[in-house]
Computed example of a mutant assay.
Amino acid sequence: MFVLVNLKAYPCDPVAVAEAAERVATEHGADVAIAPQAAHIQAVAQSGAETWAQHVSPVGHGSHTGSTLAEAAADAGAVGTLLNHSENRLKLADIDASLDAAERAELSTVVCANNPDQIAAAAALGPDAVAVEPPELIGTGTPVSQADPDIVRDAVAATKRVDPEIEVYCGAGISTGEDIAAAEELGADGVLLASGVAKAADPQAALEALVD
């Protein structure tokens, strides 16, 4: 199971979290990645942890002040990017353009969506993975795998109908190893989480509890 920790804009030490993630990944043979703020990508990547961007903009080189250029994220050390997180929604055409930008920069992609219908539409654009995250559960500590397991099952089924090669991740409320196990039983290939690690007093202990 792939574990992608989104640090959002929480007041944590991104390098300390990344170092903890790298230790846990090495010691437990786990697949853990960190998505920091764009300004911290290089420092996080230098820790040795797998590093993802939280977003790349649907633009190429040119006059795009304030945009996150995919090539710049890759140059800083990112190997993948989230797109269309519920806190940074994009129009369908912009998701498509951001996927093109990520492909140019050789970044892996995860497109987030709220429900199985949106997941199917996202999958049709050809990302490497999609992630189902009901926004009402984000940050609540109540995992979608418990609150509404059918959303996960239906998202997996919808994705596989479009392209069986696209992975499906489960987000919103994931905070324990039991949540990850439940997501896997429902057919998910990975999980997205944030506050359970980024807000933890001991990120390494939180990650170890997840992967154990």
Rank of each mutant, 00 (worst) to 15 (best):
D179N: 06
V44W: 00
V191C: 08
E165R: 05
E106Y: 10
N84I: 02
K91R: 15
A45L: 08
G66V: 01
N6G: 02
A129W: 08
S47Y: 09
A205Q: 15
L125S: 00
A200D: 09
A20W: 06
S67P: 00
V152H: 01
L99R: 05
D94H: 13
I138E: 09
V197C: 01
V15R: 11
E19F: 07
G126C: 01
I166K: 03
S175I: 03
Q146G: 10
A121Q: 14
K199D: 13
A35P: 03
A30F: 08
G126L: 07
H40I: 00
L92Q: 14
A155S: 15
V59G: 07
A200G: 09
E178C: 01
A45M: 06
V17A: 05
S175Y: 09
A25G: 01
E50H: 11
L69C: 10
D150Q: 14
E178D: 11
N114Q: 14
L69I: 13
V130Y: 06
L186M: 10
A105S: 02
K91E: 15
A33M: 05
Q118D: 15
V144M: 01
E136Q: 02
A131K: 01
A20T: 07
E103Y: 11
A155R: 02
G187C: 07
E106C: 11
A39N: 09
P58N: 08
A155Q: 06
Q46N: 15
T176L: 08
I41P: 02
G77V: 03
A70V: 10
T159V: 13
L207N: 02
C170A: 11
A102F: 06
H28K: 14
G171A: 12
A206M: 07
D179T: 08
V15I: 14
A182I: 02
N114S: 15
E184F: 08
A21Q: 08
M1C: 05
E27N: 13
G62Y: 05
L82A: 07
A131H: 00
L7P: 03
V197P: 00
E50K: 12
D202W: 10
V156A: 03
A124W: 01
